[in-house]
Simulated scan of single mutants.
Amino acid sequence: MAKRKVQRRARKILGEDPVALVWCEIGKPIPVPPKAVHRAAGKGRLKPGHPWLLYVGGVVFFFIVVPMMLVDKLGDVLGGQPASGEGNSTRRATPSGRPANDPTSAVFDGDWNLTAGQLLLRWYGHSPNPKRLVLLARDRVCLAASPRRTMSPTKADDFRTFAEFSSGEARIEAEPGQPRGYATFRLRFPDGSWLELARLAEPDDADHFLRTVSA
């Protein structure tokens, strides 16, 4: 659960205790917008920053793990065993069970000119870190981010809000009873646009958040 200093920071920002809060991320890459739309929004970054450890991990994966996998698969072929996965359907499913080509697996509604699209165009401009804090107050929803490239959701107390919506300007939709680890929720706006968020951090905060918005 979020530490007291996170709660204190949230209280200072909201001017009241949050009804619920949760750190989350965009679960899939942001689609590439039309060049004119991206340019009009300031040509902000559309991908999060990556800590150097990820690059090290990538190097290890491609130069050590991949060759070992290839050698292992070659041994299976020479031994007369079918390669793993052979004969399976090429249509793969996402961890949530949705087909990978299912349009319902989109990040947002698809209209860059509406509220969700405009929010996405500036999403990573507020912080290179992929995590965002959603704060629920009695009459509004706030989105906040930490300026740091790396952070701990339980300890980060330097976050600041970059968007605030009244209860009439945004509502949160979530299905109850979602499996932990795959839970998602949507921010829906009056213009019909929506944004899906996933990778909810801290089980206690996530469970309380989902119970609150599903009530």
Rank of each mutant, 00 (worst) to 15 (best):
1 M>G: 12
1 M>C: 04
1 M>S: 12
6 V>K: 00
6 V>Y: 08
11 R>L: 08
15 G>F: 07
15 G>S: 08
19 V>K: 14
20 A>C: 14
21 L>C: 00
22 V>Q: 01
23 W>M: 02
24 C>W: 09
27 G>A: 03
28 K>T: 12
31 P>C: 05
32 V>N: 14
40 A>L: 06
40 A>F: 02
42 G>E: 04
43 K>D: 12
47 K>R: 13
47 K>H: 10
48 P>T: 08
51 P>T: 00
53 L>K: 15
55 Y>L: 14
56 V>L: 13
57 G>C: 09
57 G>S: 05
62 F>W: 15
63 F>E: 13
63 F>A: 10
64 I>P: 08
65 V>H: 04
65 V>F: 08
66 V>F: 00
66 V>A: 05
70 L>M: 10
70 L>N: 09
72 D>W: 10
75 G>A: 11
77 V>K: 13
81 Q>K: 11
82 P>F: 00
84 S>R: 15
87 G>Y: 01
90 T>M: 14
95 P>H: 01
95 P>L: 05
97 G>S: 02
98 R>N: 07
99 P>K: 07
102 D>W: 12
104 T>K: 11
105 S>Y: 06
106 A>C: 03
107 V>Q: 02
109 D>P: 06
110 G>K: 11
110 G>V: 11
110 G>T: 11
117 G>P: 00
118 Q>A: 00
121 L>S: 06
123 W>I: 04
123 W>Q: 03
125 G>L: 10
126 H>C: 07
126 H>G: 04
126 H>L: 03
127 S>C: 06
133 L>M: 09
133 L>V: 06
134 V>A: 08
138 R>K: 15
140 R>T: 03
141 V>Q: 07
149 R>Q: 15
151 M>G: 12
152 S>F: 02
159 F>S: 12
162 F>Y: 01
164 E>H: 11
170 A>Q: 09
172 I>D: 15
172 I>K: 03
177 G>Y: 01
181 G>W: 05
184 T>S: 11
184 T>W: 12
184 T>M: 05
187 L>W: 10
188 R>G: 11
189 F>Q: 14
190 P>C: 03
199 R>T: 03
200 L>V: 00
204 D>P: 10
205 D>H: 02
206 A>H: 03
207 D>F: 02
208 H>A: 10
208 H>I: 03
209 F>D: 04
212 T>V: 15
